[in-house]
Design a protein around this nucleic acid. Structure first.
Lengths: 155, 155
DNA sequence: TGGACTAAGTTCAACTTTGAACTACAAATG
DNA sequence: CATTTGTAGTTCAAAGTTGAACTTAGTCCA
């Protein structure tokens, strides 16, 4: 390592570890996006369908929080998904501010096809990793996520 | 778990593990973006500065590959960074197609300040994780990245 | 009840990011 | 050495994403 690089982050193993996480994350999103073309979906639409499939009756704000996107994003996207009849929004009778999200039969079918693809992709990408190791990495990530949510970084 | 969810991905631990990776990745990018406001940088600009800091003389295409963004993106962004005098592009004398990237003194300063922030953020987010565990997770991620590069998923 | 306050969702204009088509240069092939 | 093929970078228009301001509905509390 050259002198000029002394004391910079790439001296620290943690830095490399984190860079790898970021790279894998982007690579998998791209791979998934490629596969979804066959279903006529893009990644954001798939994120909506798969999440509503898992959590039917979710509100738009709830969905935005899960996906870590802005609410306005969903206000733009959901009318399209409704027009394609993948999703329906039902006003909550108890609280008329809430528009609860459900999949149509068509939407459910697409979500499940997408989820099947995602499972195969996971299986492929994790094939060089034994189950224990993968579970350990997942455990670590969940710990970090929990910690970051509980105490966000303040400079 | 209700009947309707049988056979869907969230029955599989791998699915949860992967979702955690994705979430942490986005959360950290957001946290980093917040911190960079103080330096007058956004995340894409920081990605450029930190990467050129680490790999001076990188070409634009090389940088695009490292950052996993399109080349056109950099063609839009780099003139701005050059105007702000954070970056200079020098034509390679041996191959006039190549524009090699270097940081100015100012750019170098900003990159190092950003990298220092990134290290503190890493330290914070990894505080509940012991070093061995974090190293193991990094190792796992590097294996996966390598595998995905060597054999991309083909449906 | 009424007035202030909070939360859900929408709109809109600004900003990003992308991919396809293009130019300029280099390398390979005959 | 001329032609073909390939690579680096740019341009431009289209699509996506965002935050701030707004509307409407619910909550709190005097």
């Amino acid at each position: 390592m050259s002198d000029i690089n002394k004391g910079v982050p790439w001296d620290f193993p943690q830095f490399h570890n984190w860079v790898a996480v970021g790279r894998v994350s982007i690579m998998v999103r791209k791979a998934m996006a490629d596969q979804l073309v066959g279903l006529g979906l893009d990644l954001p639409a798939y994120d909506v369908l798969s999440t509503v499939c898992r959590f039917p009756g979710l509100t738009q704000t709830g969905l935005a929080e899960k996906l870590l996107v802005g609410r306005s994003n969903l206000s733009m996207m959901l009318p399209d998904l409704e027009k394609k009849e993948y999703v329906v929004r039902k006003l909550d009778p108890k609280d008329k501010r809430l528009r609860r999200l459900y999949l149509t039969e068509e939407g459910e079918k697409l979500a499940r096809q997408g989820l099947a693809i995602q499972l195969r992709l996971l299986e492929h990408m994790l094939s060089p990793i034994d189950e224990l190791e993968s579970e350990a990495a997942g455990q670590t990530m969940r710990k970090v996520a929990k910690h970051l949510e509980a105490s966000p970084f303040q400079g």
